[in-house]
Amino acid sequence: MLGEGIIQGLVETARNFFGSYVEKDRLTTVQYPEERLPLPEASRVFPFLLYDGKDPDAGLRCVACQICEKECPPRCIHIEKSKDKKPDFVGKMQVYPAVFDIDVSVCMSCQICVEVCPFDAIRMDKVFELSTDNRFRKLLYTKKELSKPNEYYQKIHPLEAAETDERRAKEAEEAKAKAAAAEAAAKAKAAAAAATPPVGEASGNGAAAPAKLAETKGSPQ
């Protein structure tokens, strides 16, 4: 009969209207500033730099290789190499970034810098409430603002961090063993140049890491 469907529809909306006051399950809206949903493991916003230990300057993993700077599609990373060197986690002497700036107003959160980094030095952050009243200075993050400890990384991306830490520990051990072997060999054979550092191997691992993660957790958006 004409008009029947209208009445059915009216009943449905009335049920929604009164039901929303009775059943709390109906209201799926999250009242954002007060209520927060936990972010998914793979969520990402802008990159940050990782350091080991307590001191951001001494423990910074970045060696200023500038791969991320070159790969960054919107060119939001700016790196200047240092003149001197400092030892990295395996004890090798490396250059470090004197200046490391990311313009987050340009960054498009593509995560390519993370995927190309052979040193596990740059990772994606989850902080998204970054609005400021200055669109130039305050959106240009310097090395100081970008450096965050490994513990922070373990907190925001526990699975990824565990995987990275494990790999790095193994690398460090291997490097130590190799160094010991090389020392022994050097002692035994007495001379020749130092053994090849495990750079190639490390970079291979670094590139494979995100792919491995993707396999384990499904595609991180």
Binding site: T13, A14, N16, G19, S20, L27, T29, Q31
Partner: peptide, 10 residues
């Protein structure tokens, strides 16, 4: 508010 409630919103 009424429309919201009919669509299960606040």
């Amino acid at each position: 508010k009424g429309l919201g409630r009919m669509q299960n919103r606040y």
